[in-house]
Amino acid sequence: MNRMLSIVKKDIKQMFSNRFIAAITFLAIFAYALIYHLMPSTVNETYKMGFYAQKGRTAIEKVMEEESEEGLKVEWASSTKELKKMVENKDVSAGFSVTFSKEGKPNARLYVSSETPKEIKEAGEIFGREFAYSLTGNQLPIDVKEEIIGTDMVGKQVPLRNDMRMMFLVVVFMVEFFALADLLAREIEQNTVFAILVTPVNKFEFLASKTITGVSLALFESLLAAAFLNILTLDILLPLLVLLAMGAFLATSIAFIVGALSKNAVSVIAWGTVFMMVLIIPAMVVLFPGLASPAVKAIPTFQLVTALDGVINNGLALSEFSAEIAYLAFANVVFFAIGFLSFRRRLAV
């Protein structure tokens, strides 16, 4: 055990004596924290609705004053054309017009843009009906101009900066696997591994010590990032530790695979980039839910991000994500076995 700890100590010292690795590791964490703290911490939930009434605007304004709808702000348009423009320019979330035919028959119409989420359309319908009723005294058929089935973007209490924290944590793991893969490839390239293996240290101890280095560093760095990103709280500490440890283990496994495939620092960057590009996609899913295709869901970082998002942003229990954790654990075992065995082959004399 002491021999393994000696290797771990040497590795950590060596990793941080590499100024590039040290810089991207810690500067990146500080950069994430800075971005996080500069972004707005609240979500603007005020619903802005455009309105055009051919006649009876005063009646609607009166209703608004009486009802004083919280979270609703009405912008008036002077014509249907102007109302459409306001919707198109996203000045308002939806537009509602009430016009009258020559016979005096009222006609209500709701305008939404192609990017307007379903909830806004529904809210627009409700507000529109209410105002039209107060204006004409009748229930009016609402003609929805365009209906888009989109993802939930409204009423969501999680600010964007909080969603981005999942991405930052995954990036911390990516940086860590680059650092460890570089260290592994250098041991082979510079033949230093053989200077170690000719001592009483055997191959298993050598690989185990590299695993300890990788997992402990990745876990430490992700916890440091979590602290800077306001995630590290006592109430979610245990589930967070479990998930970050699984992420750290995944990063270490990938590092073994990249280290086994690479001959030098250049090939570490080349192979590492390939893996990083695949593993980073699921981290984007929290920001862009439309990315969650079946193929993306098969990438292990998807399970990690989903569980982290649930625990950190939605306050859910770890047990809610037992399927994700089981999948991630299975992926960890498979990747580690591949990485461990393939790197072991590189140690052959």
């Binding site: 060596q14 053989f194 009483p200």
Partner: peptide
């Protein structure tokens, strides 16, 4: 046995950054 022997390889294998 490896605890009792010392080996100097032909290929250089030192940690250059140390």
């Amino acid at each position: 046995i490896q605890a009792e022997i010392g080996v100097c390889f032909e290929e250089k294998n030192l940690y250059e950054d140390m």
